[in-house]
Amino acid sequence: MGSGIEDKIIKQISLFAENKPGRLANVANKLKSAGINIRAFTIAESGDFGIIRMVVDKSDYAHKVLHDAGFTVSETSVLGIEMEDVPGSMSRIAEVFGKAKINLDYAYAFVTRDQKALLIVRVNEIEKAVKTLEEDNIKLIGMKELEKI
């Protein structure tokens, strides 16, 4: 990766979880006792198991805590795209991806305290996506900024 790209990438915590009562409570308890704050959270489910995806304030630490506790966990590079919380923001970003022929694996979004929206996306060609978005003056949030949100 080129210099500086790390500031434009968010490390998402991805977790394998069996679809059973109490599994989420186990994960949440670990994060609670480690003092880790969750910024964004989603579960993708497929019958017998789910994949928990979340953005937290201290991702490396969260990864270590969960791994040491025996969870099947990984860190994934995703993009955090800042949007104005107004109609049309998503459309603008989706168009940029469409024109550049960048495929999204998955996406989820949340609204921040300062009236912005943050779209989390995983793409196959992350470097190309960063370059394309910057050319269109779309702001990407890195880990340092995420800690302050």
Binding site: S14, F16, S46, I51, H67, T72, S74, D105, Y106, R122
Partner: peptide, 14 residues
């Protein structure tokens, strides 16, 4: 499953 085989992409897991 081995932790190294885990992927955050549902399509990989399927």
């Amino acid at each position: 499953m081995h932790e190294s085989a885990f992927s955050d992409k549902m399509s990989d897991m399927m």
